[in-house]
């Protein structure tokens, strides 16, 4: 099962490597991991997307909690939540493709944020599946470069993770 786990941790140097090291040492999967400081600069918020059986996920959350720098851990998949990912795609945009790419970006509510004679760079946000769908919808030969942030997640409604 795919799980999306949020954590708040002390914004100390080396904190990220503790999390990454834990996953590699114990053989857990990381599909994606994003991290940045929060509005409180002493705290970082991390979102990890992982896969594993219920037992494995239970161990992952326990092991994360055990890290001294980790303040809070929440498995967002336990309740309703929102996840978003940002993707930048550089595509060919010459000849017929120029119109086509503009249209596809519009359909997916992407924005073209950089333009040259031959290329567009499209910015897209959404759940990972939407970004996948965009890549599938366009001509693979037209894709020059992609970069994705991995998912960030947050609970819906009153579900708040704060200290």
């Amino acid at each position: 099962m795919r799980h999306i786990i949020s954590l708040l941790m002390e914004n100390e140097s080396g904190a990220l490597s503790r999390v990454a090291g834990l996953f590699s040492a114990r053989g857990y999967n990381i599909e994606s991991l994003t991290v940045a400081p929060t509005e409180d600069a002493t705290l970082s918020r991390m979102t990890i997307v992982t896969r594993g059986s219920e037992d494995v996920i239970e161990q992952i959350t326990k092991q994360l909690n055990k890290l001294i720098d980790v303040v809070k851990v929440q498995d967002l998949s336990d309740g309703s939540h929102i996840e978003r990912e940002l993707m930048l795609v550089k595509v060919r945009a010459s000849g017929d493709l120029r119109e086509e790419m503009k249209r596809m970006a519009d359909i997916f509510r992407g924005r073209i944020i950089d333009v040259t004679d031959k290329t567009y760079t499209v910015e897209l946000t959404g759940p990972g599946s939407k970004l996948d769908a965009f890549l599938q919808a366009i001509d693979p030969a037209a894709i020059l470069e992609t970069v994705r942030t991995g998912a960030s997640g947050i609970g819906r409604g009153d579900r708040i993770m704060k200290i």
Binding site: G14, S17, G21, A25
Partner: peptide, 14 residues
Amino acid sequence: TVGITRPCVKHNFL
């Protein structure tokens, strides 16, 4: 040292 010992300490500090 902090990197080498990370997986075998409860915690470490530089």
